[in-house]
């Protein structure tokens, strides 16, 4: 399947219209310790396979989208 991103506002578009925003992570509580915050900020699952990630439609509707993508095949998995 071609690597295109289905934007709910703009339709199927080239990934080059988007900015990649990284894998989805959950921030620790504001009061969490240094380890928790640094793990969150600097470590990545860096999945070779399916992961949830953020994309921002820079050249389109300029909104953030959550996309489930296979990082090996570029297949986008529909929810």
């Amino acid at each position: 399947m071609p690597f295109l991103i289905d934007c709910p506002n703009c339709g199927r578009r080239s990934p080059y219209e988007f900015k990649f925003g990284g894998e989805c992570k959950r921030a620790p509580d504001p009061g969490a310790d240094v380890k928790a915050w640094c793990d969150y900020l600097y470590l990545y699952e860096n999945m070779s396979g399916v992961q949830d990630e953020w994309w921002y439609h820079t050249m389109g509707c300029r909104s953030w989208l959550k996309i489930r993508r296979n990082t090996v095949t570029h297949e986008i998995i529909e929810e």
């Binding site: 600097y42 470590l43 699952e45 860096n46 999945m47 070779s48």
Partner: peptide, 18 residues
Amino acid sequence: GYSSEIARMLGVKYPVVT
């Protein structure tokens, strides 16, 4: 480039994006 696959075997994460 494949260090994160090793990390998964070890149950850790590395500060790496491929």
